[in-house]
Amino acid sequence: MKKWSICFSVAAAMTVASCFVVSSVYGLSAAYESNIYNPKDLKPTDSILKVAKGDPAPDFSLPSVAGGLITLSSLRGKNVVISFVPAAWTPVCSDQWPGYNIVKEIFDERNALLLGITVDNIPTLYAWTKQMGDLWFPVLSDFWPHGKAADSFGVLRSDGMAERAIFVIDSHGIIQYIDVHDINSRPSLESIVNALDAIVQ
């Protein structure tokens, strides 16, 4: 009996363990076929947050793919959702912003702007986001000084990429929601919507 118990325990342990080594199945859109570099599963998070809910958001001025600089503090009066993603041309990131691209009204209805940020340079971001169609929200480059904005929030990883993180900042510039997500998976859209709804209410 004891042997059978051990047998099933081993089987269960192997089954559970296997759930953590499945391949990443994001980046599955045919839009990127052959263009996506798959870094495989990475350490889920690799940084220490420097901000907390209730803190003023660190200010930054970053160049936009569309041209010009965008300064966070100049957006007061609007709720702001910041979507940090690790890197262009990687699996999960490539299947994240295109989803936001079809829900502009969800952000509009909640007086919210969306800013997409990576640590890539402008030419790379230009080529990558072009595959996504015309994005309605600004895409900002945190390339130089490398990852300065990400680091000010505490979401710059030790390899120079940003975390996959969502910050929701209210119209007064105060951080109201933080999700430093497992880099290997995509935050759900409803988590962002719920965070915005909590502010709007």
Partner: peptide
């Protein structure tokens, strides 16, 4: 004991069949 480990391996293989690489 090896026999039981083999059975455990078989059970795990079936359980995770559609989900592993």
């Amino acid at each position: 004991m090896i026999r039981f480990f083999k059975i455990a391996l078989l059970i795990a293989s079936v359980a995770i069949f559609p989900f592993t690489e």
